[in-house]
Nucleic acid binder design. Structure first.
Lengths: 134, 134
DNA sequence: CTTACATATACGCTTTGACAAATATGATTG
DNA sequence: CAATCATATTTGTCAAAGCGTATATGTAAG
């Protein structure tokens, strides 16, 4: 009867109910981001980031793509229109938070001066182009 | 510096991350509802309902009004525009869920045939008017 | 094929949150 | 003011979720 397995609202909101995860979503708001940058910018231990990314992935909010050793995560719009709408608005809401803006600024900066990853040919986030396309 | 105590996003989403609370919000979507109806319609033990209402209240999502022995709860739009928008969107989303529609239907019905509360002059929810204004 | 690196997962621990049952509070009634 | 009713809170228990440390996996480099 129930045609589609009814998107899990509870899980969806639970996924949003953690500040680390909100910060991650904020950084992925515009484009795909490599995990290495997420770790660097949030300044949190890597397993913590990975665990939260896993949580977001299982809730269907983000999708991952492997590129050699690197993993890139991006926002994945939920199948349900209502949920997708809410996710979009949440991202917009995050944008007018000082703290979130600071995170995004650091992403842009890290992209142009990737302290530790540049040497290893780490992939630069797409957001890099606007500021250092040269 | 921080002028307003920065609405707590994490708590906001956590409050939405529970199905019982989503059902409660759904029932309050249109108007104030007396706790006694919430208990009756959800068919859950009263302390459970009360606990969840407390949670929603502390998160700033609902407000309560005392009327003699009865408490009425209603949606309280959060001070932050972004949050308010998301809450409205969430309520709209709930509306196109079968289960939530069923809850609402039972509220309307309970209001016209309040099995156990009618005799005690329990306050009828405002939603009552459309169906039994007589 | 061994090493090194990026990321993910397992483990043990602690905190948080849901629950039921019991009890407290606040208000109305007699 | 005693009894009753509606609702809230406390208490104790259990499961879920967070954390850090350690380790596993998958990929590329030597």
């Amino acid at each position: 009867m129930a045609r589609k397995a009814q998107f899990d609202r509870q899980r969806f909101f639970q996924a949003l109910g953690d500040n680390t995860r909100l910060r991650l979503l904020n950084l992925m708001g515009e484009q795909e981001v490599c995990v290495c940058y997420l770790v660097e910018i949030l300044g949190a231990p890597q397993p913590r980031i990975s665990r939260h990314l896993g949580h977001l992935r299982r809730a269907g909010l983000v999708a991952a793509r492997r590129d050699g050793k690197w993993m890139h995560y991006r926002i994945a719009m939920p199948p349900h229109a209502g949920a997708a709408q809410i996710l979009r608005q949440t991202l917009a809401w995050l944008k007018d938070s000082k703290a979130m803006q600071a995170d995004r600024a650091r992403l842009a900066k890290a992209c142009c001066a990737p302290a530790k990853y540049a040497l290893d040919r780490a992939p630069r986030p797409a957001a890099c182009e606007p500021c250092c396309a040269a």
